[in-house]
């Protein structure tokens, strides 16, 4: 009964409050998303991976760091190791679970830092206009002109290897598109009547940008971030693979592939399973991102 009422309230044609209208639009979006099978698959896979990361200590069968040279390079299922062991006899399954934590940690950090930088640069550029705009956009273009992975490599080389530096390097290469988006949004909002009205009420630029323009930029940034998540994961894994991200003995997936690479022809599973894990999480993000884009802009289906 309550659910039926709630549904009616959400799908009402004439919302009586702003809150109801907002919830209603979210709910309708959710209904569209739910009818998109692939996006739902992505969402579910993602949820499973996040749960696995949270409950890694419970789900793991072994200590991810415990070496046992007597048990090295066992195949899947042998000696009580679900996915076998690596060259130091560590349980691959348990390492994958803990590795999920690292991947998610990296993605979350980048997803907070890069859009924030882009948001600040973009809105300042768009709102201030004039020279500030020219200079900031030139800087943005310069960063866009760099090949991303190579720039990240150069940054990590300068800063030193490690997860935090990898996050920093990826963020430094990832912010320009967000700045572009935020600037475009700001330009359309800036001259709207309602911003003029707020200005007449005496609000300063800082207040207008943070309180009135930022909230309106968020939704387009969120979609873009979701679409970029897979790219972030792949870059982080690539840095790990090159030995520039997470350092051994950390069970980061890219680093695990790097360790397993030497044995690929004889013990294929050591490098294969972490690769599948990376594939699964980035595919999930891509499916979800695609669904979100379809939901918010059904006619636009290019990248």
């Amino acid at each position: 009964m309550i659910t039926a009422n709630l549904r009616d309230w959400l799908l009402s044609d004439a919302p009586t409050s702003r809150r109801q209208a907002r919830f209603a639009s979210w709910y309708k979006g959710w209904l569209t998303l739910r009818s998109n099978t692939l996006a739902m698959v992505g969402l579910i896979v993602l949820a499973l991976i996040i749960l696995a990361a949270i409950f890694a200590p419970v789900l793991a069968t072994h200590d991810p760091y415990a070496q046992d040279l007597g048990q090295r390079l066992l195949g899947a299922g042998q000696g009580g190791h679900l996915l076998g062991t690596d060259s130091l006899g560590r349980d691959i399954y348990s390492r994958l679970l803990y590795g999920a934590r690292i991947s998610i940690y990296i993605v979350l950090l980048v997803a907070m830092v890069a859009p924030l930088v882009g948001l600040i640069v973009g809105t300042v550029s768009g709102y201030a206009g004039g020279w500030a705009d020219v200079v900031l956009m030139r800087i943005t273009d310069i960063f866009l002109a760099f090949p991303r992975l190579i720039l990240a490599l150069a940054f990590v080389a300068a800063l030193g290897a490690g997860i935090e530096n990898a996050v920093l390097a990826i963020s430094l290469t990832a912010w320009p598109p967000y700045a572009r988006i935020a600037r475009a949004e700001t330009l359309t909002i800036r001259n709207s009547d309602y911003i003029h009205a707020i200005r007449l009420q005496g609000a300063g630029p800082f207040r207008i940008v943070t309180r009135h323009i930022w909230p309106l930029c968020i939704s387009s940034l969120v979609i873009r971030v979701t679409l970029d998540m897979a790219g972030i994961i792949l870059t982080a894994a690539a840095l790990g693979f090159l030995g520039l991200g997470a350092q051994p003995p950390s069970p980061e997936w890219g680093a695990m592939i790097s360790e397993g690479r030497k044995y690929i022809l004889d013990y294929w599973w050591v490098a294969t399973f972490p690769g599948l894990a990376i594939f699964a999480i980035s595919l999930a993000f891509n499916l979800l991102g695609d669904g979100l884009r379809d939901m918010l802009d059904p006619k636009e289906d290019n990248a």
């Binding site: 897979a230 790219g231 792949l234 894994a237 690539a238 693979f241 890219g254 592939i257 690479r261 690929i264 490098a271 294969t272 972490p274 690769g275 990376i278 594939f279 980035s282 595919l283 993000f285 891509n286």
Partner: peptide, 12 residues
């Protein structure tokens, strides 16, 4: 799949 696959892994 192309957008989701780590290239170094696919190479391996």
């Amino acid at each position: 799949v192309g957008y989701s696959m780590p290239i170094f892994w696919l190479g391996l």
